[in-house]
Design a protein around this nucleic acid. Sequence first.
DNA 1: CGTTTTGTTGACCTGAATCAATTAGGGTGG
DNA 2: CCACCCTAATTGATTCAGGTCAACAAAACG
Lengths: 262, 262
Amino acid sequence: MPSAPSNGFIQAAFVILQGVCMSASNPDPLAKVAIRAVGDWPTDRVNEDGDIILSARDRALLRSLGTVSRFPKNATVYEEGMSGTTRWLLLDGIIRISHVDETGKRTILAFHWHGDIFGLCENGCYVNGASAVTDIVVVGFDRDAMRNTLLQTPQLQNDILVKATADLRLGERHMLLLTERPATRKFASFLLELIRIPECYERNTRILTLSMSREDIAAYLDMKIETVSRAITELAERKLIIRLSMREFRLSLASLKQFSAA
Amino acid sequence: MPSAPSNGFIQAAFVILQGVCMSASNPDPLAKVAIRAVGDWPTDRVNEDGDIILSARDRALLRSLGTVSRFPKNATVYEEGMSGTTRWLLLDGIIRISHVDETGKRTILAFHWHGDIFGLCENGCYVNGASAVTDIVVVGFDRDAMRNTLLQTPQLQNDILVKATADLRLGERHMLLLTERPATRKFASFLLELIRIPECYERNTRILTLSMSREDIAAYLDMKIETVSRAITELAERKLIIRLSMREFRLSLASLKQFSAA
DNA sequence: CGTTTTGTTGACCTGAATCAATTAGGGTGG
DNA sequence: CCACCCTAATTGATTCAGGTCAACAAAACG
């Protein structure tokens, strides 16, 4: 059976959480099983939330195949270089995927939300680290069991392929973000990426909620926290955003888009 | 039947090439059909060249499904925003995938070599442009025909999924490259990426051949051509590379790796 | 409340962009 | 084969956006 995480540290986090979180939250987290494909897909494949439409049978398959774990904010799901082949599906909360280079600089390669799959490995080791930005609920799948299942359920495998393709596109968008300049424009474009995530943006009130710290944003955009801070200040001065709190802004969507495209 | 490209310009390039190149090269280009997954994969899935091991039946399927086209150096396969849903498999030569932003800046999101698949689209339009760095041979697949085929051949679909996963990793590596600094170190790491591509690097002689211009390199690394040039000069001065010609260097692998990790 | 962490602001400095001038190659036709 | 042209690449001088270092303010936490 798949994968209670095999590393001692993670084991601990897992066990602690069984106690800490389990009671406080959804008694059947697997009810939430969904795979999300951000982007523009034919409506027969993806519902209005961006979730790929799974058959009852495929949902049941995923449920039977996976093992649920919970981690608290800032816990490590796995570390870079750690051996392991579990693939993870995020049910709830936010994950950051990060890489630390030889000089010690940390880069965040992606944030993930519900319905995202993560856990890239090479030679049986994770190539990046994954840690929780907020409290999270994940499902772990044994890589080989998953592969065997996919080979027997072509439609589900196709859904995963659509997901991978969507993630390729997201990677491209992140790359383009990294090359944007000046810094304020880059940050504005980052905000516009976030409004695509329902968990972050309330359409009616136009309130965007940053769930991550300035440090995480800086690591995602390849900037320094001071520069992020200055970018926020400049956008506020130009009245493109209104600060409601440290991590909540009301956006002037049209002007932001115009500024971002300038 | 799949997809002679529907756009007039491409049609023209295609037709011209039927005459110009067809005779000068492999009479059966489809013999080369292969899908490549760069990275470290179990040896039962990928051969020593990095090509995914396809069954004779799956290779035959791909051949029957695809239409071969040829394009000369610098020709456009498709333009950003162009409508079309053909997915392409590159058989020979080098392709650049590029995006032009609102300010006119061109970013190269990827270079592709034999065995790579390209042609991401959203809402029936290509999200980036693809053009030939060298003369190329490609196979075009109709998206829907391809999808139907994949649903009926789980093993082939799994191979494509492995390919997509490999490309996700390549995207991450590109992202990390973009965040490297200073510029000379970034460029050194770029050279180390290229030695993974058999077409670019001759192991015995340690000669690396850049098939693309300084301009392309700059667009891929998010630098200016002057900065690329200065980086090359610095690496040569430090004796980490020896210039053999404008686009050929002999590498001091160990010192380059050390420098790149500094 | 005091303490610690997180975020902001200011002053200064540096590495890459910019602008400008050459130089080297590659291709063409005489 | 060489002279010419045109493009690609290099080098130099200067500027500037963002990094760095340092002080401070504002939340979060116990």
